[in-house]
């Protein structure tokens, strides 16, 4: 048995064990499945530093080779180390760490998400210009829902709010369900491909 088949065998056995525990009430499989789930949590936690090591290696390499804008990498390492030290000394519930989170992380993440709204609006202008029936439907629906959800639309006409409710209740529900069911069927097909060994992308050294 070569390595790849060994890894595939491990994946298949563990998947089937978890699946059997999910669909049948067999105590031994339930116990094994619960342990395996706990194992994957532990593996994820132990492997945590791999991401940090990779990140640090990249930034240190950038500083050592004096690549373009290397000083930002230095700044990244300094801030990362400082915030980690605060978190490890005072814990994540401590006042200093919460001060950093509330006054730096929360405002920055909120601003990034809010600015993305602006880029999306400008991208939408380019993408949804009336070019085909599909883009026209998308554009008109988008405008109606925007008007129906704001007081500006309500001031023009109460019809927008009623149409918006209809759009959210019928076509959006139908399309969301269709997407969920189709996506679910696709995920099952992918799972079967992994179990049969057709899809081996997760095995190291296998690109297909």
């Amino acid at each position: 048995m070569n390595r790849n088949n060994l890894f595939l065998g491990i994946t298949v056995i563990i998947t089937l064990t978890t699946l059997v525990a999910g669909f049948f009430d067999l105590s031994i499989f339930n116990t094994i499945s619960a342990n395996l789930v706990n194992w994957s949590v532990v593996i994820g936690l132990v492997a945590l530093a791999t991401a940090i090591i990779s990140l640090m290696r990249m930034h240190v390499k950038r500083i050592m080779t004096r690549r373009r804008e290397w000083f930002y990498s230095l700044y990244f390492i300094v801030v990362f180390t400082a915030v980690c030290s605060i978190g490890l000394i005072y814990s994540s519930r401590g006042q200093p760490f919460m001060y950093v989170v509330n006054n730096i992380l929360v405002p920055l993440s909120t601003t990034i998400y809010s600015l993305l709204g602006l880029w999306m609006a400008t991208a939408a202008y380019r993408a949804f210009r009336v070019r085909s029936i599909d883009s026209t439907i998308l554009l008109v629906t988008g405008i109606i829902v925007l008007l129906g959800s704001t007081s500006f639309g309500a001031a023009i006409s109460p019809v927008f709010a009623r149409i918006t409710i209809f759009i959210r209740l019928i076509p959006t529900t139908a399309a969301s369900r269709g997407i969920l069911i189709s996506g679910g069927l696709g995920a099952i097909a992918l799972g079967i491909r992994i179990l049969l060994g057709v899809e081996r992308g997760h095995i190291p050294g296998q690109s297909k």
Binding site: P107, I137, L138, I143
Partner: peptide
Amino acid sequence: RVFLMIAFGCMFSNVILSRMTLLLGR
């Protein structure tokens, strides 16, 4: 496809609205 386009338009507007709310907050 018509159902999907209507749903995407609705979802897109919802996302824009939520982001604009965040921007107003900032």
